[in-house]
């Protein structure tokens, strides 16, 4: 669909929206996660792949539907998730035995006049981590989450879409508040780009986490500076050494 020519982009403006996508896998287990009937015998895990707002925020006002492209061995691998309530989650539940890369395609609301965009996510079934300890910890939890935070940037959105993005939700349409897990209240109708201040169970993406990451990056930056200094010194030393050799050869 070619964009109708009565629309134009808001120049020099960028609007972003945070969201979360990823997978959560659980090994089958007779007590807590029994195998549903009809599951092939070789399937070892149940897993879910999802796209949702940070802190259960609403994303449906910019993301209309999501297509998950699963492995070809799974029956009808193209799953289109559509028409979810505001504040809901685009998700697919499946069972399986192997890890593979899931292609996630986000379709935007028609007002945006934007083409769908693709994300890739690796389905994790087995505990992973940098160290054995981390792996062990994940094993203890009984589920393997692989969730990432992402920010959707709308560069120079069309005017109509810009209006949608920068206005509160129309009253009477999902403008109610909802009590979340953990006793916190977040209003589903809020169409903001804000992320929560602190972590709470089940949603570890917040300003707190961001700050930790920032501290980490800054530490790394100072370390790199130190390494640069070190290498500089090394270079100076080597140059001196080279000069002495050259001097010796010339004489």
């Amino acid at each position: 669909m070619a964009p109708p020519n009565n629309q134009k982009r808001v120049k020099g403006t960028q609007v972003y929206r945070p969201f979360v996508y990823g997978t959560i896998a659980k090994p089958f287990n007779d007590d807590t996660n029994p195998k549903p009937p009809g599951t092939p015998a070789d399937h070892t895990h149940s897993w879910t792949v999802f796209v949702k707002g940070v802190d259960d925020g609403d994303i449906t006002y910019w993301c209309k539907k999501v297509q998950f492209k699963l492995h070809e061995s799974i029956p009808n691998p193209l799953r289109m998730i559509d028409d979810i309530p505001p504040g809901g989650t685009f998700e697919v539940h499946e069972t399986g035995w192997g890890e593979f890369e899931i292609t996630i395609k986000l379709y935007y609301v028609p007002e945006s006049l934007e083409k769908p965009q693709t994300l890739y996510h690796h389905l994790r079934l087995h505990p992973y981590g940098e160290t054995e300890e981390e792996k062990e910890k994940m094993k203890q939890r009984g589920e393997v989450p692989a969730v990432v935070y992402e920010e959707q940037l709308f560069n120079e959105p069309y005017e109509n879409f810009y209006e949608i993005l920068t206005n509160p939700a129309p009253a009477g349409k999902g403008g109610k508040t909802k009590v979340l897990k953990g006793g916190m209240v977040s209003s589903v109708g809020e169409r903001t780009a804000l992320i929560p201040l602190t972590n709470r169970p089940g949603s570890e993406f917040s300003l707190e986490t961001e700050n930790l990451l920032l501290v980490d990056i800054k530490r790394a930056a100072t370390e790199v500076m130190r390494m640069i200094e070190e290498t500089k010194r090394e270079i100076v030393e080597k140059e001196a050494e080279l000069a002495t050799y050259k001097g010796a050869i010339q004489t």
């Binding site: 020099g12 403006t13 959707q152 120079e156 903001t192």
Partner: peptide, 15 residues
């Protein structure tokens, strides 16, 4: 609402 005004946007559209 996460609105930023940038001097230079290389490509419009979602990213």
């Amino acid at each position: 609402y996460g609105v930023k005004h940038l001097d230079r946007i290389t490509s419009s559209g979602p990213a």
